[in-house]
């Protein structure tokens, strides 16, 4: 895992170093004498060999210092990341929650009434939703809920730290919903498929033969074994989630990590891009590791045998 992170950091660093253009020119503007640019470059460490720069940067990162932006006002990268991260995390988490809250009951209903009319409609519906790209879905939602109905706002952002939870949720809902759509469809399909397989197991029949009501069987007997694929899926959806968040932040003009990276990339602000991507990658790897751990909890068979 550490090795992977190292490689990623190296990759990000190397990639950004390939950025066209001269950062010194970007910062100071045109028309200065060559020595001024050179001084700035030395100050920024751009004239040092690659490996030294990488080691310095990595060393700083491990102590929480991700360097400073090269674009005015040359703010601390860590500060910007810390302020942008909660926004993205909130959208992502909210989106996941909405997706789960809708997908689990939907999948259970579908699986229980397999091949019924509603099940087939839900199947068709989720397939269709999966075929709509995130930005298109977002635009359509904006068309309906912002332009036509004016129920939700489209830009600006209210922070929870400002004390206005309701306002924050009001701004967060539509972006979170956009993110949730694709996840919802995916979760419903996989969970349904898994539940159908589980429901065919003998122990479900045995539970029925004990006289247990179907709802109870669904929750206590079927859901737990089926939750594996859901957990795997949660892990897999992370990458997609982060991507969706970027698009959603763009659509709704939200000050999150996605906007941070996109804007920094557009401005050639390489320390910002490096720092932000590193943080994203670390979080991603950590969460995946956490998901692997949770497998042990869900299936007692994978726990250490204690016979």
């Amino acid at each position: 895992m550490v090795l992977v992170l190292l490689i990623v950091s190296l990759g990000v660093f190397a990639l950004v170093a390939l950025l066209p253009g001269d950062p010194a020119v970007a910062i100071l503007g045109e028309g200065h004498p060559a020595s001024t640019y050179d001084d700035l470059r030395t100050e920024l460490g751009l004239n040092d060999p690659m490996l030294t720069r990488y080691a310095d940067w990595l060393g700083g990162a491990l102590t929480g210092d991700l360097g400073r932006s090269v674009v005015p006002p040359r703010s601390d990268v860590s500060d910007r990341v810390v302020s942008a991260l909660p926004v993205s995390v909130e959208i992502a988490v909210l989106g996941l929650l909405i997706a789960l809250l809708v997908a689990v009951p939907l999948a259970m209903w579908s699986a229980y009434h397999e091949d019924g009319v509603l099940d087939r409609m839900i199947s068709a519906g989720t397939f269709a939703v999966l075929s709509v790209p995130g930005f298109l879905a977002g635009l359509l939602l904006i068309m309906v809920f912002v332009n036509a109905l004016d129920w939700f706002p489209r830009s600006e952002w209210v922070r929870i730290s400002d004390g206005d939870l309701l306002g924050n949720l009001h701004h967060a809902f539509l972006p979170a919903l956009t993110v949730a759509l694709v996840e919802l469809a995916m979760f419903t399909r996989v969970l349904r498929s898994d539940l159908i397989v589980t429901l065919r197991e003998d122990y479900i029949l045995a539970a029925r033969a004990k006289g247990m009501p179907p709802l109870r069987i669904l929750f206590t007997d079927a859901l737990r074994p089926s939750s594996f694929s859901l957990v795997t899926l949660l892990g897999l959806s992370l990458g997609r989630l982060i991507g969706s968040t970027v698009i959603v932040e763009y659509l709704f003009s939200l000050p999150g990590m996605g906007s941070l990276v996109v804007n920094a990339a557009n401005q050639g602000d390489f320390p910002m891009v490096q720092g932000a991507v590193l943080v994203i990658a670390v979080i991603y790897v950590l969460i995946n590791a956490g998901i692997d751990l949770s497998y042990g909890y869900l299936d007692p068979r994978t726990r250490k045998a204690h016979v």
Binding site: E201, D202, Y203, L205, A206, A207, R208, A209, K210, G211, M212, T220, D221, R224, P225, L298, D299, P300, R301
Partner: peptide, 30 residues
């Protein structure tokens, strides 16, 4: 009636029990 008046024992004990539930729970829940 199921479980109370009529009960059934199935063929395969490997699959008749829920692998994620403790033995005692299978009994106590009925």
């Amino acid at each position: 009636l199921w479980g109370t008046k009529i009960a059934m024992v199935f063929q395969d004990p490997m699959t008749s029990l829920n692998p994620t539930k403790r033995v005692g729970t299978h009994l106590s829940e009925s």
